[in-house]
Amino acid sequence: MPPRRPVQRATINDVARVAGVSRGTVSRVLNGETYVSDAARTAVEAAVAEVGYVRNAAARNLVTRQSGAIGLIVHEPHSLFLEDPNIGSILLGINAVLSEADYQLVSLVVDSDRDGVRVASYLTGGYVDGVVIISARENDPIGLAVARSGLPAAFVGHPMDIEGVPYVGIDNRSAARAVTERLMATGRQRIGMIAAGLDRDSGQDRLAGFTDALGDRFDPRLVVEVPLFAHSSGIAGMRELLTHDDRVDGVFASSDAIAAGALDAMRDVGLSAPGDIGVVGFDDSAWARRTQPPLSTVHQPADLLGRRAAELVLAQLEGRSVEAEGSFLETTIVWRDSA
């Protein structure tokens, strides 16, 4: 099979030739300028359709010094990017706002240290006009590079060692405390936690809220640390928790995916919720409605988090003043049959 030849793109000169006008007139029409007659505008638009002309974004970007793209950085393994419905909801919220403003969203998943170095270089190379960062961890080279570069940016969540970059999030500590207190109010006496993401603010704050709620009843032996907000982490965490204390009658899982995994691990050993162990999650994601029984959980507005983060980046690109301090959105407890 012979090699395919590159497609010859129509140029602005082709449009001008077919329309019977000057190159300058074509340029004015394409740029939406008003100093063009109706006849010339109609001729140019017809010629564009006839020759199949598509504007060269790279050439335009050299003139405007803008790419028309906003980067989305997700600090999670590829598998979790696909599994976590919260990430999808945040992404859709961001894309909705950027689409209205005629910006393109470029998604970049950071799955390794090598990814981190590569993406940090990409972000500071002029390929995007701004960036939204999700799940940034402590000592994150990407977040630090963005903060130093002055690139318009916003975090979903608050990296604890980076200041001066606006962020939007939720009060994870208060929400975790509230849902744990609700679990305690059902009469549970031995409540454990499957804690994930302890290298970032969300994970640390949820553990702190759990600790606050239990007070003198807190037992560090009933906290099992897992690496990811993932279903598989919930299975492993629940199995470990039951080996620490088989009297556990309540569990706070730091995400719905973890809680779903915990329920599966319980079912494997003949335990049920809420009869044997009351289980609560966090997020009110699709996982919460998919489990049997449905999960009691904390609802966080993932779509709105994405929208607000995108709005913060656009505000900076438009030269509007943006507070470096963050803003928190409200959460609510959704009580279902698992507890």
Rank of each mutant, 00 (worst) to 15 (best):
E318C: 03
G88H: 15
R4H: 05
G261M: 03
T211F: 01
N13V: 15
A310M: 01
R17L: 14
T124W: 10
A196W: 03
I333N: 03
L198G: 10
V36N: 13
M193S: 13
G250N: 06
T42L: 12
S285L: 08
A58E: 07
R137C: 04
A208T: 10
P152H: 05
Q104C: 12
R200A: 12
L98G: 02
A57K: 12
V109Y: 01
V44M: 09
T211C: 03
R336Y: 05
G215I: 01
S174N: 05
L80W: 11
N172V: 05
D212F: 13
V128C: 12
A96P: 00
S321R: 13
R60D: 14
Q292L: 13
S327G: 10
A230H: 15
F252L: 13
G143P: 03
A176H: 08
N86I: 09
F218P: 00
I12S: 14
I94T: 00
T180L: 09
A39K: 14
H158I: 08
P220E: 15
A315I: 04
A262Y: 05
Q66K: 14
I191R: 01
P141H: 07
S67G: 11
R17F: 08
L144P: 00
I87R: 10
S107P: 06
V29I: 13
D205G: 08
H231A: 04
G125N: 14
P166Q: 07
Y127G: 14
V251C: 02
I194R: 00
L271G: 01
D113E: 14
S202P: 02
R55S: 06
A57T: 14
V63E: 08
V132W: 01
D14C: 14
T332L: 13
A288P: 02
T331E: 04
L183K: 01
A185Y: 00
V54C: 03
G116C: 03
M160H: 13
I277Y: 00
A339D: 09
V224L: 08
V97M: 00
D115G: 12
V26N: 14
T25R: 13
V224Q: 07
A185R: 08
R190F: 00
P220C: 09
V334G: 04
H78E: 14
D161R: 12
D219P: 03
T25M: 15
P85D: 10
R137S: 08
G306F: 04
D171N: 10
S254P: 06
D216N: 07
Q292P: 04
A16N: 13
T34G: 04
G68F: 07
A59L: 14
S232E: 15
A59S: 11
F252I: 07
V131T: 10
V298A: 03
